[in-house]
Computed example of a mutant assay.
Amino acid sequence: MFFTSFGKYLLLLKTVFKKPEKGSIYWKEIMHEMNSIGVGSLGLVAIISTFIGAVMTMQIAFQLVSDLIPNSIIGQINRDSSILELSPTISALVLAGKVGSSISSQIGSMRVTEQIDALEIMGINAPGYLILPKILAGITMVPVLVIISIFLALSGGLIGGALSGAVTPSDYIMGITGDFRGYTIAVALVKAFVFGFIITTIAAYHGFYVKGGALEVGQASTKSVVVSCIMILVADYVITALML
Rank of each mutant, 00 (worst) to 15 (best):
M1L: 15
F2G: 15
G7K: 12
Y9R: 09
Y9N: 08
L10R: 12
L12Y: 10
T15L: 13
V16Q: 05
V16M: 10
F17M: 08
F17D: 02
F17T: 02
K19A: 05
E21I: 10
K22H: 14
G23A: 11
S24P: 05
W27L: 15
W27Y: 10
W27M: 14
I30Y: 13
M31I: 12
H32T: 12
E33R: 15
N35I: 12
N35F: 09
S36H: 11
S36I: 14
G38I: 02
V39W: 10
V39Y: 13
V39A: 13
G40M: 01
S41Q: 00
V45L: 01
A46V: 00
F51Y: 11
A54F: 04
V55T: 12
M56Q: 11
A61G: 15
F62W: 12
Q63I: 13
L64K: 06
S72A: 15
G75D: 07
Q76P: 00
N78T: 14
D80Y: 15
S81K: 11
S81I: 09
S81G: 15
S82F: 02
I83A: 06
E85K: 11
L86V: 13
L86D: 06
S87M: 09
I90Q: 03
S91K: 08
S91T: 15
L93V: 13
S102Y: 07
Q106G: 03
I107P: 01
L119E: 04
G123P: 05
N125I: 07
A126H: 03
P127I: 08
G128D: 06
Y129I: 11
I131T: 07
L132P: 04
K134G: 01
I135D: 03
A137D: 04
I139Q: 05
I139K: 00
T140V: 12
T140F: 13
V144Y: 08
V144P: 06
L145I: 00
I148C: 10
F151R: 04
L152R: 04
S155A: 14
I159R: 09
G160K: 13
G165L: 03
A166F: 08
A166D: 11
T168Q: 14
T168E: 13
D171T: 06
D171Y: 09
M174N: 12
I176S: 10
F180N: 08
Y183P: 07
T184F: 12
T184S: 13
I185E: 10
I185V: 15
V187C: 08
V187R: 12
L189V: 11
K191G: 08
K191Q: 03
A192S: 15
F193V: 06
T201E: 00
T201I: 03
I202C: 05
A204V: 02
G207T: 00
A214T: 07
A214C: 01
E216K: 07
E216Y: 02
Q219W: 03
S221G: 05
K223N: 01
K223L: 02
S224Q: 03
V226P: 00
I230M: 07
L233E: 03
L233A: 05
D236M: 02
D236R: 06
D236C: 07
